[in-house]
Design a protein around this nucleic acid. Sequence first.
RNA 1: GGGGACGUGGUGCAGCGGCCCAGCAUACAUCCCUGUCAAGGAUGAGACCGCGGGUUCGAAUCCCGUCGUCCCCGCCA
Length: 450
Amino acid sequence: MMLSTARWWWSTNERRRMLRIRTIEAPAYVGQRVHLGGWMHSWRDMGQFGFLVLRDGAGTFQAVLDNQEEMAKLRGLQYESVLDVEGLIAAEPRAAVGAEMHDCHIEVLSPVLEPLPFEVNKKELKPGLDTFLDYAPLGLRHLQKRALFRISAELMAGYREYLMQQGFVEIQTPKIVGAATEGGANVFVLDYFGRPAYLAQSPQFYKQMMVGVFERVFEVGPVFRAEKHNTARHTNEYVSLDLEMGFINDHTDVMNMLTGVLRHMFGRVTDKCAREVALLKLRIPSIGDTIPAIRMPAAQQIIFERYKEDCRGEPDLSPQHEVWLSQYAEKELGSEFLFVTHYPTGKRPFYAMADDEEPALTKSFDLLFRGCEVVTGGQRIHRYDQLVQNADKWGIKPEQIDGYLQAFKYGMPPHGGFGMGLERLLMQLTGHTNLREVTLFPRDLDRLAP
RNA sequence: GGGGACGUGGUGCAGCGGCCCAGCAUACAUCCCUGUCAAGGAUGAGACCGCGGGUUCGAAUCCCGUCGUCCCCGCCA
């Protein structure tokens, strides 16, 4: 249950100290005079009296005003004005939560005088994405919108909670880096006291180095991709839930850890976000002991047989392929999740461990969730000479990745890990179709503010 | 980087050659209402139909350009 946030509050109305409580705690204070502080969510003037719904960081609560003097204080105020309302919490069966505030005294803490650009107190948020993002500080106050980010917070909390139980240590790796050698995505270049530096596109190298220190590490942090992609499932900055773990047998150990942490994260959302889940009408997926896994070539064979498109031998899956495979997994395997394993060597970074029996394939995996890729991971090469050799094959000179190689030179255990896109996960969980809708302040091709 | 749509009061939409000096919902203003909870009712204000050219007797509507937005693909989380 949520901790009480009740605090003593100096009332300028009453010239005395009174308890300020949060709206969701209010029903527990029936019979007491308290303060509620919050935003004017709605105001329904019925003539002789009116209903004021106050919204705070936790929820909403209704106050009934039947005093013309108090009602007059709301004249000229727009919604979202910040009010302190002092009054008596009374049991009232006609109120939505069985209680409401009576005998209210209002103090206007911060008046809003200009009409809002759009309504934030309606059931659904109306404006288009661009308009919404222009007014994100306001729009994010919408109950559905903020429910989304409360769930996001619990996903992160669940991620941390589970991994710490599993002996992982949380780390923060640098986001300003001196070399951009991982390949794949483009990196942002910045001026570092006259030298070029880059925004980290992944904590990959650093979390691997830290396996040499703690064996098991994880990080929750931003990553930056300078790709000029313009799609509904890409942004240029996102939150990556990373982990890396030592002493594994192969990539399936990492997949099992991922399965466990996801199950825990969803469990935590179910426990802690019941109101948000109900508000958004979410269906939280259940995860059994294991998530089904299918090898890349077999996946392509299924696409060929069931959907009549021949992508066999292609190095990667297209978004359409991922949708099809998810459909297949749901129908035939009863799972909204599906691991696709053994991506070809050429499609994966130089540190990816090749499969023993089929060296053209890697011990790697992607996790598909309701049709979209949300995680990529695998086993890494841990032998120094092999890593140097492979880097060379990818055209990377050892001196470029000096610090990284050092970890391996001085002994690294077999290890692996993954990176999970927080917003991607949230998007799929909440049924949104544009990543920007589930990113607090998205950064994309042409949006840098707010 | 390639392809496809769409720009109409604050917001979200309708209208797609003359019935439109532009309609609806909501927001906003004034008023009515003693149980609202997407409150209801009355009245009112608010848009030179993204911008610039052109076609036409006549353009929100057709054409060209331009800017902006959205979507799909490449790439990826």
